[in-house]
């Protein structure tokens, strides 16, 4: 795994907290390659809740295609980093 910059690390840690909160699992572990297949219960129904929580946490807003078009956690992390500038 590549070393993360401070900003990436901050984003990742906040993301991990959101994931644990949404999936009600305090021991949940994620990394850049985690996809919906890897987390039980991550379907389109929960995905929207997750994305809105992410929006609230980071103070950003995604458009519909960004919400629907993410491949993995790494892409989400990059998207947030891009929005935060």
């Amino acid at each position: 795994m590549f070393p993360m910059r401070t900003n990436d690390k901050m984003i990742f840690e906040k993301l991990l907290t959101v994931f644990r909160e949404v999936f009600l699992d305090e021991d949940l572990q994620i990394d850049g390659s985690t996809t919906a297949q890897d987390i039980p219960g991550w379907d389109s129904f929960v995905h929207v809740t997750l994305m809105v929580k992410v929006e609230e946490t980071f103070g950003v807003q995604f458009d519909d295609d960004e919400i629907g078009g993410l491949a993995d956690v790494g892409e989400l992390q990059q998207l947030i980093a891009g929005k935060l500038g």
Partner: peptide, 25 residues
Amino acid sequence: RRNLFTPLQVRLVRRLGSQHAVTVG
């Protein structure tokens, strides 16, 4: 999912708050 469910759910959850996510879903 692309054109109805996600746009509708996103707007409703944003407006009502994520505590109502299940009802909205």
